[in-house]
């Protein structure tokens, strides 16, 4: 009798097992049929970004993976750089009282009268976006906040994306992982 019972249990077990197997198979097939060939990564759409400063504080990494990128092609090399200097600054020098960046991450280099090159020191950049707003409002918008993929750990749910008030974060294909804004683009 025990044997019979055991056999019966075995049979039920087997049936359920096959059922689960089929279930997993169906889910797998359904998902595989519309899977992405590439992986996706998080990125900020600069057109939506409002430079709220959450990128500096909300990243799960101790040093935010969001950094300011400088698109040199768009830069005007202005002496009076509104991304580098505080508004209402009278002297255009590198003095701490004139610098907009809270961590002094932008380096200014004289090129040729009246042009200056601006370079972001990523070690120091905390991704607060202050310079991005200054440059976007008064300049060409060549400074843009972007997720730096060598730093980003690509969390399943990006912690900054959850906090982002303007929903500027989205997943983009890893094959084109940066969303840089051209001039006048929306």
């Amino acid at each position: 009798m025990d044997n019979k019972k055991l056999n019966r249990r075995e049979f039920i077990n087997k049936g359920v097992r096959i059922g689960i197997g089929v279930g997993i198979g169906v889910i797998g097939y359904e998902l595989l049929s519309r899977t992405l060939s590439s992986k996706t990564v998080w990125q900020i759409d600069p057109a939506k970004c409002i430079q709220c400063g959450k990128c500096a504080t909300s990243c799960v990494l101790e040093q935010s993976a969001v950094k300011c990128l400088h698109v040199y092609q768009m830069c005007g090399y202005c002496d009076l750089c509104s991304g580098y200097l505080r508004p209402e600054t009278k002297e255009l020098t590198t003095g701490a009282e004139n610098q907009l960046c809270p961590t002094s991450a932008i380096e200014r280099k004289y090129i040729d009268d009246p042009y200056f090159e601006y370079h972001i020191n990523e070690e120091l950049c905390i991704g607060c976006g202050k310079c991005v707003k200054g440059c976007g409002a008064f300049g060409n918008g060549s400074l843009q906040l972007q997720v730096q993929h060598e730093l980003c750990v690509n969390c399943n749910q990006c912690a900054i994306a959850r906090e982002c008030p303007s929903e500027a974060f989205s997943r983009v294909p890893a094959s084109s992982p940066y969303l840089l804004k051209g001039f006048g683009g929306k």
Binding site: K130, K133, G134, A137
Partner: peptide
């Protein structure tokens, strides 16, 4: 609604 310490207060300008 934390205050953003690095806010660029453009509306004041």
């Amino acid at each position: 609604h934390d205050e953003n310490p690095t806010e660029y207060k453009i509306d004041k300008l």
